[in-house]
Computed example of a mutant assay.
Amino acid sequence: MTATNKLQSIIPPAFQAWHDAYHFTPATRVGDTIWVSGQVGADAEGNIGADVQAQTRIAFESLKYVLEAAGASLDDVVELTTFHTDLHGEMEAFTAVKDEYFPSRYPSWTGVGVTQLALPELRVEVRAVAVAGSGKG
C-alpha cells in the first residue's frame, strides 16, 4: 500500500468536539476517494435550521467544508445519499436547495425516507462520496 492509499481520518476544526465526544469522523479518505459522514441541519454551535430549506443549506455547507478539508470540492461529489423525515412532503423544497449546490452536474443520488434522525428537530441528513480532482475540466 502506498502512502496515498493509506486511510486518513478527516476532522476539520469545527468538528473536533463531535469527534472527541461521539467518536465521529466527518470524512475518511483513501487515495482520491472520500467518504463523507452524514451532515445534518445543525451548525457547529448546535443551532438547528428552522425548516427543511434552512437545514438543507446547513447540511450542504457542512458537506462543502468537510470536502475542502479533505482536499476536494462539491464538483468532485459522485454520489449523494439523503435521508428525509418527510420524503414526499419536503422533496421539492429540498431539491430546490440541492440544485443551488449542484446546478448542472448532478451526482448519483438516492433519497431515503426515515422515521427519525439523531435529534427530533432534524429533517434531513446528507452523506456523500467524492473522488478528489474528478470534477475538474
Results as ranks from 00 to 15, higher is better:
I11M: 03
I48D: 08
D86C: 02
H23N: 09
V129T: 15
S62K: 04
P12S: 04
S62L: 04
Q116L: 07
Q39T: 13
I58F: 10
L80W: 11
F60K: 00
H84K: 06
K64V: 01
N5H: 12
A44E: 04
A14H: 02
G111E: 15
T4F: 08
I48N: 04
D32T: 11
A96Y: 10
Y65V: 08
Y65E: 10
S134Y: 13
A128S: 14
L122M: 11
L7W: 10
D99Y: 08
A14R: 00
I10E: 09
G113Y: 13
G49Y: 05
D43Y: 06
D32H: 15
G113H: 14
L122K: 00
T4R: 02
R105N: 15
F94V: 03
N5P: 00
L117D: 14
E45N: 12
G41Y: 09
S134N: 13
E125I: 01
E79D: 15
D86R: 04
K6R: 04
D86L: 03
G133H: 14
V40F: 14
T28P: 07
L74E: 11
V36Q: 07
V124W: 12
A130W: 10
L7G: 07
S104G: 12
L122Y: 11
F24Y: 15
V97K: 03
L80F: 12
T81A: 05
S62I: 02
F83D: 02
T33G: 06
Q53S: 13
